[in-house]
């Protein structure tokens, strides 16, 4: 029961309190801000979810290898080594789609690449390394970060639909009003945490 509660707390913390978009501004780019097609947003968020989860397992493996080998490395080198986990999971996802679902490559090939090299994926790995989380915590954190990104993408898509129907001042139309919308949501998430998260 205690373990279940701990898993739940790590997961909820990654989804809500430390949401990649609203608490750290990671993963905010043109792909997330301007994309209005439901299918593309779904492909993007599912790719990020897959990448976050798989790379968290591989990232923990790399961290374990570094600790096991007992080599003195600087913090930056350790962080850079984690990037290998992102690359490996991207290659895995891309080859998986190419071999099993060929038609998806032409439809969502670029979206998958943007999702893979999105700051949220590498960011979640770096955060779990900074916190020195254990294996299961790292995996749950990765899964939570992915779900947090799905939640953020969903909220941004809903915001698009609502804001398209409003009479927004000309200067704010497009990206500025979306940033304001995300800013207000970020304020709500900030209210849950109560302080700024460390960089």
């Amino acid at each position: 029961m205690e373990l279940l509660m701990e898993i739940l707390s790590v997961f909820l913390s990654a989804v809500l309190l430390e949401n990649m978009v609203f608490s750290r501004a990671l993963g905010v780019s043109r792909t997330t801000l301007v994309q209005e097609k439901k299918a593309s947003v779904m492909a993007f968020s599912i790719s990020v979810l897959f990448m976050c989860t798989v790379s968290s397992v591989l990232g923990w493996g790399i961290r374990w290898l570094i600790n096991w080998s007992d080599i003195e490395l600087t913090l930056f080198v350790k962080q850079a080594a984690l990037f290998l986990a992102v690359i490996a999971s991207y290659a895995l996802l891309y080859l998986l789609i190419r071999s099993k679902m060929k038609n998806l490559v032409s439809m969502f090939g670029n979206v998958v690449s943007y999702a893979a090299f999105n700051g949220a994926v590498y960011g979640s790995l770096l955060i779990s390394a900074t916190k020195e989380l254990a294996f299961w915590q790292t995996v749950v954190h990765g899964l939570g970060a992915g779900f947090g990104m799905v939640l953020a993408c969903g909220l941004i898509l809903m915001g698009h639909r609502r804001l398209d129907l409003r009479n927004v001042p000309r200067a704010f139309r497009g990206m500025p009003v979306m940033l304001l919308y995300i800013g207000i949501l970020a304020l709500a998430f900030y209210g849950l945490v109560g302080h700024n998260l460390p960089t």
Binding site: A25, M175, M178, L179, L180
Partner: peptide, 12 residues
């Protein structure tokens, strides 16, 4: 220094 301030500032 907060994230929401950053979003709102860039929006303006």
């Amino acid at each position: 220094a907060t994230v929401f301030f950053g979003f709102i500032m860039v929006a303006f």
